[in-house]
Amino acid sequence: MNKFPLLILLLIFIMASCSKNSTDDPPSGNQISLIDSLVTRTDTIVAMKDTTSITVYTTAIDPVIQWSTDHGTILGSGRRIVYYSGECCIGGNIVTCKVSSENGSDVKSVKIHVKSYFGGG
């Protein structure tokens, strides 16, 4: 019996199993899937003028919800925050939400595009 086709199929299966989906990472370590989604009212705002709200939908019970951003300002806390930016922070800015519970934690980010008040950006 020719085992070559079977070997090829097995190789394809192994390769497919090892491939990584960058947009939907499975939780690793004690990171578990606690965040259903991170929803923004709008992902593009004008600096100095607009704000946008970001809401985290989580399955965790009594979660600790942490927010951070690489540029700009986060107002409020908890499941829903408001993001604001001055002209200092024009460009694509990352807002990150980390949800922790007794069982572990989960992290998701969203990109907010900040346009210049003067146009452009």
Binding site: Q66, W67, S68, T69, I74
Partner: peptide, 11 residues
């Protein structure tokens, strides 16, 4: 630094 689990702005 964080306040209420929210990272404060850099400034």
């Amino acid at each position: 630094q964080e306040v209420d689990d929210v990272k404060l702005p850099i400034n």
